[in-house]
Computed example of a mutant assay.
Amino acid sequence: MKRVRCEVPAKKTYGDLGDACATAHALDVVGDRWSLIVVRELMLGPRRFADLQSAVVGITPTVLTERLRHLAGVGVVEHATLDDLARTRAYRLTPWGRGLEDVMAALGRWAHGSPGFPVAGGSMTPDGAIVAMRTMTPPTPEAPRPVELGIDLVDVRRAAAGVRRYRLRWRARSFELVEGLAEAPDATVTGDSTAWTEVVFGMGPLEEAERDGRLAVDGDVDALTTVLELYRSVLAG
């Protein structure tokens, strides 16, 4: 019996269809399912394929490979080499790709008004939690006191991925929240990234998260409260 080869027709872009709108082109670049989630997990720094496979819950290795290939082809993602003994291959955002943080921040703020938000039973990766904080931080907030926090998070759904460490520094009108080890933190928060997100965005009290062992605080609790009050003021409008 002769086999008939079936070829899947190439997907047409908005540009192929004659739409010259810049927004339509943006959707051609990052509008596919998973693309912006991959970008979110690269927002704070380079990540290995295995890191992305673990963090982007539900994506298959084949689809992740295809998305990374597409994002590299359109100039959003590029290959990187980690500064370790093995010179591990990784992926990172290009300078142009990093500009998507403003886009995602606008989408995130817009989504807070959705009738379907927050998502019941949803979880957050460590990077997702920190990107959400960056999204909701007002421009140049004024610090009532100098604060430095260490935020050490793990996704309990994939504890084998290990802890991600972040540094928050707030001095006067300078606010920094990045990946990295805090040098002289007033306090350090350690625990589950979803529990931390719930505390920051007012979906659960810190005391309860500490009591059930999902979070632990070491150091000056008042320093941590200063930061939490910032986000409470944002949510209060």
Rank of each mutant, 00 (worst) to 15 (best):
T13Q: 07
R171C: 01
R134I: 04
V38S: 07
R157P: 05
V189F: 04
E229S: 13
V74M: 01
T125E: 13
T190M: 07
R67T: 15
R33H: 13
P144M: 01
E179H: 10
S114H: 10
Y91W: 15
E41D: 13
E7A: 11
D212E: 14
S174Y: 01
A10H: 13
G75C: 08
E142T: 14
T23C: 11
G202C: 11
T225A: 14
A24I: 07
E78Y: 00
G75R: 05
P138F: 05
L36N: 00
G73R: 05
R98G: 06
I59G: 07
M124K: 08
E207H: 11
R167F: 00
G113S: 13
G121S: 11
T188K: 01
V156M: 07
V178S: 08
D84Y: 01
L93D: 10
A26S: 14
T194G: 11
T125I: 06
A182I: 05
M104A: 05
G219W: 02
V200N: 08
R211N: 06
H79F: 03
V38G: 08
S54Q: 11
K11I: 10
V178P: 01
V63I: 03
G204H: 06
D19R: 05
V131M: 09
T140A: 13
Y166D: 02
G202W: 08
C6A: 14
V76S: 08
V147Q: 03
R33T: 15
A161N: 04
R33G: 06
S54H: 01
E101C: 00
I37G: 09
L228E: 02
G219Q: 05
L93V: 06
S233A: 15
E207N: 11
V30T: 10
G204N: 08
M1A: 14
L168F: 04
D32N: 11
T137E: 01
K11F: 09
A90N: 05
L177F: 15
F201P: 07
P146N: 05
L177P: 09
V200H: 08
A132V: 00
A105M: 07
S35Y: 08
V154Q: 10
G122C: 02
S193F: 05
A50Y: 00
M104S: 04
A24T: 10
A80D: 14
G116R: 09
D222I: 02
V63S: 03
E183K: 11
L215S: 02
F201R: 08
M136Q: 09
L64I: 10
P61I: 03
L44S: 07
V163H: 04
S233L: 14
A182E: 09
A111V: 02
D51Q: 04
T137F: 02
